[in-house]
Design a protein around this nucleic acid. Structure first.
Length: 420
DNA sequence: TCTGGGGTCCTAGGGCGA
DNA sequence: TCTGTCGCCCTAGGACCC
């Protein structure tokens, strides 16, 4: 039996956990640069704030309805996620952390000893008490059905945050309740095609011939369909090594300034190189991309991408920045207003042992230099040492006007309680 | 004026060597 | 030596997730 545990409105709940005045109040959390709405409390959903809403368009509604708006605080959310996951791990040895706010727990043979609903309510109580985060739990024999059970647990308050699909009757009822466009694994493109042939619910989807699903939705759709039929097909995923690491950002405005882009690319390259070193990995390929503003139909569009192989796998900031700059110089064209850029590294391999090229070799001084810089920056809690390509007097800064304190990860932000 | 970021997986199609 | 076929590998692009 799988159990999907999902934190309710996770980012909004994290903000609320340390600020009790927000209980019962509408909350939205914005993406980087305070661009789009990426999380909403139930109260904000009820006021009609859609997911992905551009913040500037909804500003009047935020003011009118007294909606509490926060910039995303990933230090807080990441730390709260680890706390929730460590509590969940106390309930079963088989836990698969699926995302920052979700985990699949596997319970094999547990039904002989306890009732899933009671156990689920105990997990809910423990996580809420330990972290302040409310969770919903959905049990079912397959992952796709557990996801569906979780949706039902969230939707119907009378279920007490837990729903179990353990009979054929419950499975059919759940499938008939779920609109096809909300099924896990069916996105916008497939949903539109399915609705076009009058497939409106998850149940309708399970009735389609497998040949049609295979031909139109690939093996991924077929696996999903079998899972929804109750045949476990989407198995437990082993923890896999990372396949790529990215740093991409939209700019606050638009730019056609090559030097500005060069500095941004250097900063993104330094970020991915530091991530590689943190995870003790090397990369064998650097990808750089530029994008113009896709929302400005009146401006010429240009979205180049360039893959640049690295002669030897590396995690040196100097080397990755050098290659990223070469790639930038090849794709940059005058006359375009750029809105976004990014550096992605791929062909990831473990740091040791690494394959050296017979003729080319990494400058061994880089390793000691990178290690010294990383240590210095970690000890000082922020990026004290920067590389030449990164502007020292950084002119740009991510827009984060509504950032809450790092309650759990920064000493200065820890809440103090006066007991008089 | 202002519209996110970071991932995975699958498929089609081209290059290339056996 | 030339040509066709097959399979492998790589990349681009699309679809999905949170």
């Amino acid at each position: 039996m799988y159990c999907l545990v999902d934190c309710n409105n996770f980012y909004a709940s994290c903000e609320r956990a340390f600020n009790p005045a927000l209980r019962g109040q509408p909350i939205v959390v914005l993406s980087n640069n305070d661009g789009c709405v990426i999380a909403r409390s139930n109260e904000a959903k009820a006021l009609g704030v859609p997911m992905g809403a551009p913040a500037f368009q909804f500003q009047p509604l935020f003011l009118e309805k007294n909606i509490n708006v926060f910039s995303s605080n990933y230090a807080l959310y990441g730390d709260m996620s680890s706390r929730v996951m460590s509590l969940l791990a106390e309930y079963t040895p088989e836990i698969e952390i699926y995302s920052i706010d979700e985990a699949f727990l596997k319970f094999d043979g547990f039904e002989k000893y306890f009732d899933y609903t009671t156990y689920g309510r105990e997990i809910h109580r423990r996580v809420l008490r330990g972290t302040g985060i409310p969770v919903s739990l959905g049990y079912a024999p397959t992952k796709a059905l557990a996801k569906l059970a979780n949706r039902i647990a969230k939707k119907f308050a009378q279920l007490g945050n837990v729903h179990v699909i353990d009979t054929e009757e419950k499975r059919i009822k759940a499938l008939k309740w779920m609109p096809v466009e909300d099924v896990w694994g069916i996105g916008r493109a497939h949903a539109a095609r399915l609705i076009g042939i009058k497939v409106r619910t998850a149940f309708d989807f399970t009735q389609l011939p497998e040949e049609w699903v295979r031909a139109n939705m690939s093996v991924v759709g077929l696996r999903l369909q079998r899972d929804l039929k109750g045949l476990p097909t989407i198995g437990a995923e082993e923890i896999q090594d990372k396949k790529n690491i990215a740093c991409t950002r939209a700019f606050e405005g638009m730019t056609s300034d090559y030097d500005y882009l060069k500095e941004r690319i250097a900063t993104y390259a330094a970020t991915v190189a530091a991530k590689l070193r943190h995870d003790k990995l090397h990369a064998g390929m650097v990808t750089v991309f530029l994008q113009t503003n896709r929302f400005r139909q009146d401006l010429p569009a240009y979205n180049p991408v360039l893959n640049f192989p690295i002669e030897f796998p590396t995690n040196s900031t100097l080397e990755i920045t050098r290659i990223a700059h070469q790639a930038l110089s090849r794709i940059f064209k005058e006359g375009y207003q750029y809105k976004k850029a990014g550096v992605i590294v791929t062909k990831i391999s473990p740091e040791t042992p690494h394959q050296l090229n017979f003729f080319l070799n990494e400058d061994p001084r880089h390793r000691a230099l990178m290690s010294a810089i990383d240590k210095f920056n970690v000890n000082n809690g922020r990026e004290m040492i920067k590389f030449g390509g990164m502007a020292l007097d950084r002119k740009w800064k991510m827009k984060q006007e509504r950032l809450s304190p790092m309650y759990t990860t920064r000493w200065g932000d820890v809440i103090t309680i006066n007991c008089k």
